[in-house]
Design a protein around this nucleic acid. Structure first.
Ligand SMILES: [Zn+2]
Ligand SMILES: [Zn+2]
Ligand SMILES: [Zn+2]
Ligand SMILES: [Zn+2]
Lengths: 164, 164
DNA sequence: TAGTGAATGATATAATGTAATGTTCGAGAT
DNA sequence: ATCTCGAACATTACATTATATCATTCACTA
């Protein structure tokens, strides 16, 4: 039984990154076509860069990478691409890091929860309704209508815990 | 029966701000004395400014206010004061706003949850163990040891909802 | 009253993000 | 084929948020 509340777990260091990247790009490509929006070369490249690092990337890291490509790039270049990728559900912004990470269940706008390892930087993404519902209920009880939830947990992943 | 999971609710516009500020300053003063740390005039002033606005304040808003006092102040001045106030549990940083707000249950380092009204800017603070525990449990189930939880909800408070 | 560490002053710079305007490009219409 | 129009992108400039570093002052104590 697959637990769909876990959109992406901590990947072991020796897994096939290239496959991750390829899947992410293919999925984005398909979703964009279906949705009638354009995964332009720039947007595709930014998405690839985000996935390739596999830990959250700052906007200026990505900007540097674009420039290393030989491409002219300025801040708005990367921010526009990131806005597109976030709006379309391929990338999440981590507020507590000011950084961006590939979405583990791409293509739907959704309200994930993130576990961020303070040691290795890897991130797991949940979409756990027990969590989001209890937050919504508690907010409701105060007459507050919850829109967007930011849930980010800093800690240590199992692998890093084991190394202590 | 007081519900201690709500550390601060949305205050009506006509409540007694001065009392809020006074209580916050008195509490901080007491706690600091007990703890053997110094609530210096600068730190006290920053805490007062944070409380007086009663909606989250950016560091540079506070910096401007300090300068209006006639005091020499630069970014490190206000960031150091804020660091102290956050570490000692008198102020929280809201990651999704890059801003600071007075703590509704000051003096203990604790892991609150915040409801942020997108319309009026007011913030309610919860310390709800049902929320924090379920997050901790779900993290645990993935072998992740949760340290600090950032839980911030954007939405509309009851009063602002009513005005629609 | 000199020594000590915490707190603050002071300067510079890094890191992150946005506004405003113009240009290019490509899909669909003629 | 070429035209038109809006989306995507380029470019410049600026705004906001945050940190590094070193010097100085201050409160407390020995
Ligand atoms: Zn991977
Ligand atoms: Zn780790
Ligand atoms: Zn008040
Ligand atoms: Zn409101």
């Amino acid at each position: 039984m697959t637990d769909r509340s876990v959109l992406s777990d901590f990947k072991p260091g020796d897994h096939d990154h290239e496959a991750c990247v390829a899947v992410a790009l293919d999925t984005a490509s398909t979703v964009c076509r279906e949705r009638g929006v354009r995964l332009t070369p720039l947007r595709r490249r930014v998405l690839e860069l985000v996935w390739r690092r596999h830990v959250p990337s700052g906007a200026y890291d990505l900007l540097g990478a674009l420039r290393s490509d030989g491409r002219r790039a300025d801040p708005p270049t990367v921010y526009r691409a990131l806005d597109f990728l976030v709006e379309n559900g391929f990338v999440h912004r981590l507020e507590s890091l000011n950084a961006y990470v590939g979405c583990g269940g791409p293509g739907r706008a959704h309200n994930g929860q993130f576990l961020i390892c303070d040691s290795c930087g890897r991130v797991a993404e949940l979409e756990d309704h027990a969590i989001s519902e209890i937050i919504r209920e508690k907010a409701d009880a105060l007459g507050f209508h919850a829109g967007w939830q930011t849930v980010e947990v800093i800690g240590l992943c199992g692998e890093c815990l084991g190394r202590v």
